[in-house]
């Protein structure tokens, strides 16, 4: 057991260090003080309780959007439509909240979560249905749907659903202060973080400890073998994508219910795209997504400090993410090459 865990922890960790080193070289070349930048990043992300809270709040949607890529990846589909599912999920959740605004908050929040998860789920399930029944490449169609989702949202918030009081950033009407998702205990971390952790753990149990998860992994490993052994491949694909999309839709609902109170362009704040990266680093393991999402929440939380203290453009966190992604992918080729990492297996 320990031996199997050893390799997937050592290699990504080493890759992260290499990526940080490359990023350090890059910003030094761009004229910044690399050590100071790393110090600020640590301070902004994990230095104080205040920055920890910032980090965890940003990790919440990342966990859920990472699930949107990780679950389909286990069955062999590369879906990058998390951004679109966040947008449609947040949009329908906001609509539900506006319609029900005078009901009791618990009903409003439950209905919002249900609607957000349903639309997000159907959005992603449609992608894998198209893949299975029409052979449409799921990576490209999921990306196109991101743009379509954003266009629909812009149409609604600039047009029929616009609250005339929102001038700078056109938005829908507010769902009502009483209906907002609250913070956990005395912290400033909203319940979205709790929901994200629960979703990751629950889906980890489903994927690793149930016949359903086993069937998904068989299908992802060898589609032909799965078909020959009589597994309902189409149903597995669609249910997996439904769950994946529901997670991303919930992320949209949380952003509306806990942060903005309305649906607007803050919904497409790249959480969907960063989730792809988190999923790949966690090697599509729902449990591993939790720490990786917290790490990336930290990068997000510290980006403001980097702009203020070091005059770095806000794109620097995008560069860092790109470098991490590339080094992590390149490190895939190292698995199984180091016998000393494997040798542990026999001794334990």
């Amino acid at each position: 057991m320990m031996g199997r865990l050893f390799e997937p922890i050592v290699i990504p960790f080493a890759a992260l260090l290499v990526a940080l080193l490359l990023f350090g070289i890059f910003i030094t070349a761009a004229g910044a003080d690399a050590l100071g930048v790393f110090e600020s990043m640590y301070r902004g992300a994990f230095g104080t309780w205040f920055s920890w809270q910032n980090t965890l709040v940003r990790a919440a949607p990342l966990m859920l959007t990472a699930l949107c890529t990780a679950l389909p990846a286990r069955i062999g589909l590369i879906i990058i439509g998390g951004e679109g599912a966040v947008v449609v999920g947040g949009m329908t959740a906001a609509l539900t909240g506006i319609v029900l605004t005078h009901a009791s908050p618990i009903i409003v929040l439950t209905a919002m979560a249900f609607m957000g998860m349903t639309t997000g789920g159907l959005w992603i399930a449609a992608i894998s249905a198209l893949r299975h029944y029409r052979g449409v490449n799921e990576t490209i169609s999921s990306l196109l749907l991101n743009y379509i989702a954003i266009a629909i949202m812009n149409f609604l918030v600039f047009g029929p659903l616009r609250d005339p009081e929102t001038l700078n950033k056109p938005s829908t009407y507010h769902i009502g202060e009483a209906n907002m998702l609250t913070e956990m205990g005395s912290t400033s971390i909203h319940w979205g973080f709790g929901l994200g952790v629960i979703a990751c753990v629950a889906l980890w149990v489903l994927m690793r400890h149930t016949p359903f998860g086993f069937a998904v992994d068989i299908t992802g490993g060898n589609m032909r073998a799965a078909k020959l052994s009589g597994l309902p491949v189409a149903r597995l694909m669609i249910i997996t994508s439904l769950l994946a999309g529901a997670a991303a839709g919930l992320a949209g609902m949380i952003e509306v219910a806990a942060v903005h109170g309305r649906a607007n362009s803050s919904l497409n704040a790249n959480y969907g795209y960063e989730g792809i990266l988190v999923a790949f680093i966690a090697r599509h393991n729902p449990l591993a997504i939790i720490p990786v999402a917290i790490l990336f929440g930290g990068i997000r939380a510290s980006s403001g400090l980097l702009q203020r203290d070091h005059d770095l453009p806000d794109a620097s966190s995008l560069v860092l993410q790109g470098i991490i992604f590339i080094v992590i992918l390149a490190s895939e080729t190292l698995y199984g090459r180091f016998s000393w990492l494997r040798a542990k297996e026999k001794t334990v």
């Binding site: 794109a315 992604f325 590339i326």
Partner: peptide, 26 residues
């Protein structure tokens, strides 16, 4: 990157999309 073993070219593409956009903005 793609000619290394076990490296998926679609994933590399997504990574380069992110890095290229980030570098261009930076």
């Amino acid at each position: 990157l793609c000619q290394q073993q076990k490296v998926n070219d679609i994933a590399v593409g997504i990574a380069l999309m992110l890095l290229g956009t980030g570098l261009a903005f930076f």
